[in-house]
Amino acid sequence: MIVGLADISWCGKLRAMKMPGKAVAGGSLRIGLPIIILIAIGVYCAFPHPTHNRAKLRAIASESQRLMAKYPIGPRGEAVTIREGEWPPAIVGLKPYTVIVFDGSVHIGTRPFFDGGWGYGYAPDRRNLGMLPQCWSELGSGMFWHGPC
């Protein structure tokens, strides 16, 4: 009980102390602004973003064309999942979790999510991409990017 009373009297003294207004406002701004910036950067970095490097996109498109030629779709139209050891170097550089050849396109998944995740797609004709057209943004060289959709 004595400890409790001492704590209460100490808190009362702390509340009774006057702090200069400018020092408190300036101090919280000095600390708060960097924290807000760091949180914003963290949120931005938490989500994958596509490369816009034209040379890389051309290399990925070229490798995707070779994959489509090497793994043709059978008469039943089933997609072919490429094993990790068979991924070409430019595609490996994207750090995918899956590479799938479809009829007329290649999907390179870079981050899974319950509704498709994030990734790249290669398709000479945009209509052959597997998701809704509004899910894809064009990067050039037949390459496209999608997020969860």
Rank of each mutant, 00 (worst) to 15 (best):
M1R: 05
I2L: 09
V3Q: 12
A6P: 06
D7N: 11
S9V: 12
S9Y: 09
W10N: 15
W10M: 13
G12Q: 11
G12S: 05
G12Y: 08
K13Q: 09
R15M: 02
M17E: 13
K18A: 03
M19E: 08
M19W: 12
M19K: 14
G21W: 07
K22D: 03
K22M: 05
A23T: 14
G26I: 14
G27F: 01
S28P: 12
L29T: 07
L29M: 10
I31P: 04
G32A: 14
G32I: 11
L33P: 04
I35N: 05
I36K: 05
I37K: 13
I37R: 09
I37P: 07
L38M: 15
V43A: 11
Y44W: 07
Y44G: 04
C45W: 00
F47T: 02
H49L: 02
H52M: 12
N53F: 01
N53D: 01
N53A: 00
R54A: 09
R54S: 07
L57E: 05
R58V: 13
A59H: 06
A59S: 09
A59D: 08
A61K: 08
E63K: 09
E63L: 10
Q65E: 15
K70P: 13
Y71K: 04
P72H: 06
I73G: 06
I73N: 11
P75L: 09
R76F: 12
T81N: 13
I82L: 09
E84I: 05
E84C: 03
E86N: 14
E86G: 12
W87T: 07
P88N: 11
V92A: 05
V92K: 13
K95E: 08
Y97D: 08
T98A: 12
T98Y: 08
V99P: 01
V99H: 01
I100C: 10
S105Q: 04
V106M: 01
H107T: 07
H107D: 05
I108E: 01
I108T: 01
T110F: 04
T110D: 02
R111W: 01
F113W: 13
F114H: 15
F114E: 13
D115E: 15
D115I: 14
G117V: 09
W118V: 12
W118A: 07
G121P: 02
A123V: 00
A123F: 00
P124H: 07
R126F: 01
L129W: 04
G130A: 01
Q134R: 07
W136E: 08
S137G: 06
E138F: 13
G140Y: 00
S141M: 15
M143G: 05
F144L: 00
W145R: 07
W145S: 03
H146W: 02
P148I: 13
P148Q: 15
C149T: 06
